[in-house]
Design a protein around this nucleic acid. Structure first.
Lengths: 242, 242
DNA sequence: CGGTGCTTTGACGAGTATCAATGGGAGTGG
DNA sequence: CCACTCCCATTGATACTCGTCAAAGCACCG
């Protein structure tokens, strides 16, 4: 993609033209002038799987939109026990407004592509455009709903139910429009077994055993450790404790 | 932090004059005219402990501010397993904007006093006043931070650490200004053992045993099941896995 | 080939749930 | 004032899920 500040298509920056965040993400709140202004200080960057984006208690000067890939938000106890407290997919917004330091670590779970801009630029625009703040509020409420859903899973579900819930979470994210009628879904897991364990509050061994059990029961099949096909969706949903 | 604007008491509804939500809550975003308009449709109500405020999937036509007491937000699985996903103290806002139905149950954990207003009134004002939406965003971000903190507790802490974390959570809420130097704190638990268990993802028996252990070690003392004194704050903090 | 990283599988034990009984305070009625 | 009940909390005995430790399998890569 070229980096010219060339402005076509009703004055929309090249950077933004094919960007998902411009429609479903927070940038949908901005008009073309604002987009141009923001694009001046924005940069698209690619991050390798495993790289740390934001350190715990680190000062954050940049916010980002996730363009592709999956970012995991984690919290860690002093002795190393870790919990994933959120997964961000495109076109989610990444950052914690109104606080200089993040309460969580952010790390690329897969290769990730981001569009980053300085904290100050967004905060300036938020003052101008209530619509931007409105979008942020909606995203935050969505994340809060997801976090609370997951609290139920963490606190009250068994290992078996947790793994089933996780698979459905990913399946729904891959294809949110998936009708009830569709039986089979197939996708690549964006997380390693270790990440899945950290997301579910389990160990990798327990996660592995649950996968094995699901395979043995003919509910899913797995190729290459990552590629999953859900063959009996209903039974997976039943197991998740709908 | 919170800019508290000096408004003359002239023109402020009686209902609001001594209200905590007018300073630290979302009503701080409103000028006296707006307060008057909102107060016309508002009503203060008292709810007995145990009463249900908002049913899961129920349509909500009212939002509220918590004036006193504690409200618990819960989620329940089809077989009855329950998880508390949030606790609301004064002057928290109660409601889920932009969605007609709540994803959680809300129930009075103690006797609760509320200030309720119709959904429509708030949403109308949100369009007029970006500051109101700003306050809502801040409260939502705060709740998100709390939810994620708790996910770490639910997913990765032991029963012992969970109970210690819970006691500190309540202690900090009773007296947020509590300095590091202060050793002793004393307070009434706003929750029954069953509620605490549902908050921590444990059973009441396990919670009870952990309390007993803390008492035996001289870290806390308990009178009448509800009244707790933390005698060795540092050791409680150490146990919570700071 | 022999590493290295990730996953699976197995054997065992610790931590927590479950089931069951007891304790204790508050309210009620004799 | 004392039984009686109800509700909640505590305590005990036992079962079972899941974590821990150890080893082996498998793909990828130099």
């Amino acid at each position: 993609m070229n980096l010219r500040q060339d402005v076509h298509t009703a004055g929309i920056p090249v950077l933004c033209q094919a960007c998902e965040a411009r429609h479903r993400g927070i940038c949908g709140a901005l008009d073309s002038d604002q987009l141009v202004a923001l694009a001046k200080t924005s940069s698209k960057q690619t991050i390798a799987s495993g790289a740390e984006l934001v350190g715990d208690t680190e000062t954050v000067e940049h916010y980002s939109n996730v363009l592709a890939g999956v970012v995991k938000l984690t919290k860690t106890l002093s002795d190393g026990r870790q919990q994933i407290v959120g997964l961000q997919f495109a076109p989610d917004f990444l950052g914690r407004p109104f606080k200089s330091e993040s309460a969580v670590n952010a790390e690329a779970a897969t290769d990730v592509s981001l569009c980053s801009f300085p904290k100050a630029a967004i905060e300036r625009m938020m003052k101008q455009s209530p619509e931007l703040e409105h979008r942020l509020l909606r995203q935050t409420l969505k994340e809060l709903d997801e976090a609370r859903d997951w609290m139920l899973t963490l606190g009250r579900k068994t290992a078996s139910e947790k793994v089933a819930s996780f698979l459905l979470l990913i399946a729904n994210h891959i294809d949110p429009t998936l009708g009830e009628g569709e039986e089979k879904v197939t996708f690549d897991l964006p997380l390693t077994r270790a990440d899945i364990a950290d997301f579910l509050g389990l160990t990798i061994e327990t996660v592995s055993r649950q996968f094995t059990k699901l395979r043995a029961e003919g509910i899913i099949s797995i190729e290459n450790n990552r590629h999953v096909t859900v063959t009996r969706r209903e039974r997976l949903e039943a197991r998740a404790g709908h």
